[in-house]
Design a protein around this nucleic acid. Structure first.
Lengths: 209, 209
DNA sequence: CCGCGAAACGGAGACTATCTCCTTATCGCC
DNA sequence: GGCGATAAGGAGATAGTCTCCGTTTCGCGG
């Protein structure tokens, strides 16, 4: 499945070695400088020429997609764990969104290309995104059947919201509580239910958990 | 107040003319290509050298800030109108956020530098942003005193959310209803109130208005 | 009207980043 | 070991940002 050539001679070992090494270096590089760092700098740090980098990963998105693959698997494992262990559909959806939000924060600046992938569909990131939208729809559907989520909300909107929240997190404003505030805003909104709950209600207040 | 020199000779007319013309061209340029277009291209279209462009506006942010100034005044006018005409604090906050959201969508890609300005504070956009955060806090405060908004939400979070929503709007996903969905998600959340409202309630459903 | 000094202009070019060729080096197989 | 396929390397084409400095234009006083 991951063999390059179908019939011919087998893949050269130096190619595989380079690929792996570039991935290691890029992981480190993106982790410390965000995804906007220079491609040539990655090549240089990996000790290869730019040509080699681009042959392996024709675009920054391709490199990102390869890097995220390992994490994708973690996320899928987490999805399965939630399905298995969390019976309350409301909690399951919340936990899935939490997991998604962590995945999306793997590297600084990641939300941007993910959003682009969602729109254009031509990026190697697009397939992954699409899969996670589908998963979101499933958790959401279950929550909606149980009356735990509003019936007109759609999975793609929740996914986009998660992306947007992660994007906003990049602007912490020297204030560490904003991320939580944004997540709970997405979950419960800013508005109090009209004429149903008393003013000052704790309904929907973000918990420290 | 807007005179450059304090005592000396008066500002050269060609400078003022160039400044105005650059602004006109940049407005048009950003409107059609988004704020990421090449600075040199703006200079060229305006018929000036890059040096002239950069002397007037040392950074892209400075140019943006100058462009937004006119719109800032519109937004402030709208703020005053809402204060004057909308007595219901819930509606007032909603309308203010709507106005803010339109302002933030003036140019494609605007949310990004605004977020950066919010964090760094060194950009010429920062002061403007800060002012609008304050206004948001005022509308929010009024709504909270009336029990129309949840008491722990903060103005800066609402502002950031508005920014994030506008950012996400850039990824319409060939689907025109997402923007509304995101706005109403921010307003009412995805979760149904726990144990208070029947499943399937219309509570918080986005209206077409 | 003219000339002078200050102010502003223009654009060449230094710098950085992306991405592409084409030559050279290396590998897999017999 | 040798041959053909495959990959590596890196110079360089292209594009964008921003600066520096020689040249032009302007405002003002005579």
């Amino acid at each position: 499945m991951s063999e390059g050539a179908v019939g011919g001679r087998r893949q050269r070992t130096d190619k595989q070695r380079n690929r792996t090494h570039i991935l290691e270096v890029a992981e480190e590089f993106f982790a410390e400088r965000g995804i906007a760092g220079s491609m040539d700098a990655i090549a240089k740090r990996a000790g290869v020429g730019p040509g080699t980098l681009y042959r392996h990963f024709p675009t920054r998105e391709a490199l990102l997609a390869a890097l995220l693959q390992a994490r994708d698997e973690e996320l899928e494992a987490r999805r399965d764990a939630i399905r298995r262990e969390v019976t309350d559909s409301r909690a399951a959806l919340a936990q899935w969104l939490q997991a998604l939000s962590e995945w999306v924060t793997a590297f600084d600046g990641l939300p941007e290309p993910l959003r682009a992938a969602l729109t254009e569909g031509t990026s190697p990131l697009a397939i992954t995104c699409q899969g996670f939208v589908t998963t979101t729809e499933q958790f959401l559907g279950a929550a909606q059947r149980d009356g735990a989520a509003k019936p007109w909300v759609r999975g793609r909107d929740l996914f986009l919201s998660t992306l947007a929240t992660a994007w906003a997190r990049g602007a912490v404003m020297a204030d560490e509580s904003s991320p939580d505030a944004l997540v709970s805003l997405m979950r419960t909104g800013w508005e109090t239910p009209t004429g149903k709950t008393a003013p000052g209600s704790d309904e929907g207040r973000p918990s420290s958990a």
